[in-house]
Design a protein around this nucleic acid. Structure first.
Lengths: 196, 196, 196, 196
DNA sequence: GATGAATGAGGCTTCATTCAT
DNA sequence: AATGAATGAAGCCTCATTCAT
């Protein structure tokens, strides 16, 4: 019971932080902004999190876990490597469309050096990228994809392409085309490029 | 004469800021850090720049102008659209290799919301992306590239792929492969994907 | 309870500021001086006041309210217009004698242009002056004072005379005569001057 | 020749400071503001004045000397003590009308404690007040004014009344009555009040 | 556990003053 | 004598964090 209520506050703070960070950026967000958004006192945040940085780390962990789980579930439905790449692109971009706050943070704040990406090894993000590398390896094993494609290069290129698309999506107010059109275009380039 | 000395200090501050921002990130960098690195007094910085944000903006402008000019010069040598895409990829990644401080800032800080990307329209960056779109349009005009490729989608995907490669390059200490190998892989995927 | 403690700090800061401003002048007073005098942390001041200017404004408001209330109470005791002018002069100068810090600030800092007297309309000060004008009007109505006296001119002249006396009082260390003597002299000049 | 040019700069700086201090107040005025107004370089000011405070002191000295000389000249024309008081009031307020910048500074900045009025004995201002005391003494000697009037109290009351009138005059934008009407009212109160 | 008032270290920025030219 | 770029000390203010209630 007390546990549940605590859990509840923990997630309320994470969600509040997601909204606040997305709107103002990590450095311009104040603890009191998050507290207000989460409807808790400033001090309460320090019961659940060591400090401000820890909120961002936890936010990444929680959000990336959900993103990762969702992607694994989506990919599990389809055995064909080509289709799997399409699904990855589409799932990734749809997620951005549905959860733009989180997308903004992952894109913008994940790049923050200083505390993140250098000192903090983002394990889940690495796993997320490896889903792509695995698809490529499967495709190569089944002879669909070229042998000279380096999976660890491909995974970054593919993710980077999607990520840049989604940044544009998040940042631009006017939408020029459907997000699924974008997903199909991008996965199309890559599939064409590595298919035998 | 006075002009030269002034110009001199202006660029010394820009270069100092490039080093400091790259190392500590914009928000963790102190004006006094930049001043020390540039070997000027703290107050001197405010003779040349309105405030801390303005240093970052100026830094982008100056560095992006150099990057853009260099890219235009490199592309001018080659008429073939396919080769031009390879040149773009190679030039981009080589630049990152040669100027990792600037690369770090453009990648990490350019994403900062707040003052950048939202309020500050990065004209030069848009021009840089449009170089890619133009190559695609030329290739389509000469019948080399597929007609259904959307240049404005392609340019982001292509840039995003290179950018993610270069982030990895900048952030990882151990190098697994040559940067030119990466450039060839990435441009290879895209060229294969949009060629007729 | 929390309210009382807050109120307590608010007035402690006002009183500390009164002492510090009186001693060093507004511009030479540091926030840290006031904080030290009030025995609070520097930052605490910003919980109760927007900025340094706001402390001065609040100080005026609070002190002028007390001064005004006191003067109204003193005047209420006496119906005779002539005696009321004497009471005004005496009460005003006695207040200065009892509260020289406040007097110094009102005299010295109230004149500061910039934020005060021009942008900030001092309502209470205007009310204070109008007490004098009202006495004159009453005296004119009852036929004691000359009809050609302009109350709105008289109020300034009368206040100015007292104010200059009190400035001398505050600033000079050696006292040449009793403050009540001064009050009687000044009110004497004016009463003689406007009596029929 | 060089002397004349130097003298010229000295007064240009004084006049520029008068305008700038009047507009922004002493503390909000920057040396560079005065330099710009005087059309000299910042550093030039330090050839003629020790520091910022010294400009204000010099400004008082110069302006008060002119004010004093003018008042002495005006009073010299009239032997009658009653008329002399009227002339003082009228001359004082006319000066304020003609030179509002100087009036603002003398009223506002002269009150500044800290550096002025306490540490800096304003000799000329004392002399200015003593002109009033002398008129009273003459009037008492010739039996026109009451014997019990204390000249050193009267001088402050009279000056204070005029000063407050002029403050109102300087600060208010809309003019409700003629400045000579005010002069006559004020001197009228006092003359009526001390006449036998 | 929850609160939010209080703390105080530290940053950005200003601007009087200097000094090489 | 004149300049104005450069200096750097110092102040206002913010805000992450603490802790008494």
């Amino acid at each position: 019971m007390a546990r549940n209520r605590s859990q509840d506050k923990y997630y309320r703070i994470i969600l509040a932080a997601t909204r606040v960070f997305a709107k103002k950026g990590f450095f311009h967000s104040r603890i009191s902004d998050i507290a207000k958004e989460a409807k808790v006192a400033d001090g309460t945040i320090y019961i659940y999190f060591e400090n401000k940085d820890a909120i961002l780390i936890a936010l990444f962990e929680e959000q990336m876990r959900a993103v990762l789980d969702n992607m694994v579930a989506q990919l599990a439905k389809e055995p064909d490597s080509v289709k799997r790449l399409e699904i990855f692109a589409c799932t990734h971009l749809e997620l951005i469309e549905q959860n733009p706050d989180m997308a903004e943070i992952i894109q913008v704040e994940l790049r923050q050096s200083g505390k993140f990406m250098k000192e903090y090894r983002n394990e889940r993000f690495a796993q997320y990228l490896d889903l792509i590398a695995d698809i490529v390896r499967e495709g190569q094993a089944s002879g669909i994809f070229k042998e000279d494609v380096i999976p660890n290069v491909f995974k970054r290129a593919f993710f980077g392409a999607l990520d840049e698309m989604s940044r544009f999506w998040v940042l631009s107010s006017r939408r020029h085309y459907d997000i699924r059109t974008a997903a199909r275009q991008v996965s199309g380039y890559f599939i064409g490029g590595i298919r035998r």
